[in-house]
Write a protein that binds this DNA or RNA. Structure first.
Length: 438
DNA sequence: TCCCAGCAATACATTTTAGG
DNA sequence: CCTAAAATGTATTGCTGGGA
């Protein structure tokens, strides 16, 4: 019983995002009327109906609903459920679709609105441009010269940049509170996820890294982690955590590490103990972020997937059907691929040259070949440039070293596959991998 | 049958916070 | 300003489906 409640609650939270309260109440009434056992069932039935109609349409015949949910709802509430669904589709699509992203105000001319106390404590958070130092500071000696392996997808990065720009425009303030950005990002991602799952069947793989959304007890933790991996999180240096110094404090997150956003930290004193014996109640760090030139450029580039939402319109009979999407087509445009290679990768010195080499090789028969190449080249590079870290890494046992190689090398390729630069043989698990344009 | 890429549960660790 | 519980973060190990 408890478990069942939890599940319904989970769905409830999810659906509040897409359905008005009115519709949720409607679902509850329908359950109470005895037609269905749970809200979940109503929703499942609705999706089944959609699915059958869609299939029927593809086969060129008229769809037969196994059970007419819309008729039930019409009788009870006097309006057409499908009609409503169409509205939600249009609403969601409007949010997700992709116009060209432009800033209405320039970041340089706008400052965050701060209280007096906060202003006193204003501390600038450096944007780390020194490529190697950054990765090393953030992730220790195991990520030197590489984009962090948990930044394993580019699509969430693109979405996050878009959300930030939208927010800056809406609030007419160039500096956005990081926590607020994360919230909006998650809302956007859920809407994105909702549309793709319901409309574009072929694209389900793309969103497999998005946090799962229903019936998952750890969902909130997962999505929190998802947000800070891609959007950002302030990491405080232990020794300094109670002091209002900026030393050793930095921001992680794909957006920041790839140079797409800049950040500043504002410190609020509450209590704590400084070196000089002064005591505070606590210290709260508020991080404000803004888009960089690079981020603006990236967000503004054409994206086939986002553009796709612009093209999808309702059919003449006002139904939302599964639209055709070429599953073999890349979800990133050529401009975006070029941007990644030319403007983002140079921040990661080893990965940059490694990817260049991968492209010049052009084909790998199996994933093992990539690992092999990576191990050879990375160790060589590390030995030359960072002998101490080389010692540390090779001093580990074989298992640890091979895990290191596996994670690092394969994620480099998975990013290239997502971007559409490389293709992994459809249906295969271990490759071959080859360049798309060859 | 074996193996391993890609997850994901779980145990363990650290940080935050509430309360006095 | 301290303690301890609660929240949150991290690391390791384990699992599994399907290709070799």
């Amino acid at each position: 019983m408890v478990e069942k409640n939890d599940q319904i609650e989970g769905n409830g939270r999810l659906f509040e995002l897409f359905l008005e309260k009115e519709v949720w109440t409607m679902l509850e009434k329908l359950v109470r009327s005895g037609t269905y056992d749970s809200e979940k069932e109503v929703i499942i039935q609705a999706i089944k109906n959609l699915h059958e109609r869609t299939k029927a349409r593809e086969n060129g015949s008229k769809g037969e609903m196994s059970e007419s949910l819309s008729t039930d709802l019409k009788q009870i509430y006097g309006f057409d459920f499908e009609e409503r669904k169409k509205l939600y589709w249009n609403e969601n699509k409007k949010i997700v679709r992709s116009p060209r992203y432009l800033l209405k105000i320039l970041p340089e001319f706008s400052l965050p609105h701060l209280t007096e106390v906060e202003q006193e404590q204003d501390v600038k958070l450096e944007v780390f441009d020194e490529k190697l130092a950054t990765q090393r500071q953030l992730y220790g000696s195991e990520s030197i010269g590489l984009n962090w392996y948990f930044n394993n997808r580019i699509l969430p990065v693109k979405l996050a940049a878009i959300v930030l720009i939208q927010k800056i425009n809406k609030e007419e303030n160039a500096w956005i509170e990081l926590d607020e950005l994360k919230k909006d990002f998650l809302t956007y991602v859920k809407q994105f996820d909702f549309i793709i799952r319901n409309v574009i069947d072929e694209l389900k793989d793309i969103i497999s890294t998005f946090p799962a959304s229903s019936g998952d007890k750890n969902f909130e933790r997962k999505e929190g982690r998802f947000a800070h991996t891609f959007v950002g999180k302030l990491v405080k240096k232990k020794e300094n955590k109670l002091y209002d110094t900026s030393d050793g404090h930095y921001l992680t997150g794909a957006l920041f590490e790839m140079g797409l956003i800049k950040a500043k930290r504002v410190v609020k004193k509450r209590w704590g103990k400084t070196m000089t014996g002064k005591s505070y109640k606590n210290i709260t760090n508020i991080v404000y972020v803004s888009i960089t030139e690079l981020g603006l450029e990236f967000a503004g580039l054409n994206n086939p997937l986002l553009d796709f939402f612009d093209k999808v319109e309702l059919a003449e009979d006002n139904q939302v059907y599964t639209y055709e999407w070429d599953n073999d087509a890349p979800i990133f445009s050529h401009e975006e691929q070029k941007f990644y290679l030319d403007k983002i990768l140079p921040k990661f010195e080893f990965e940059h040259s490694f990817v260049d080499e991968m492209i010049s090789i052009g084909r790998f028969e199996k994933s093992g070949d990539i690992k092999e190449l990576f191990e050879r080249q990375y160790l060589e590079w590390l030995k030359l440039n960072y002998p101490q870290d080389y010692q540390e890494l090779t001093g580990k046992d074989d298992r640890k070293l091979s895990d290191f190689v596996r994670m690092r090398s394969l994620v480099i390729m998975s990013r290239l596959v997502e971007l559409g630069i490389f293709v992994k043989e459809p249906g295969s698990k271990f490759g071959p991998y080859y360049l798309r344009d060859k």
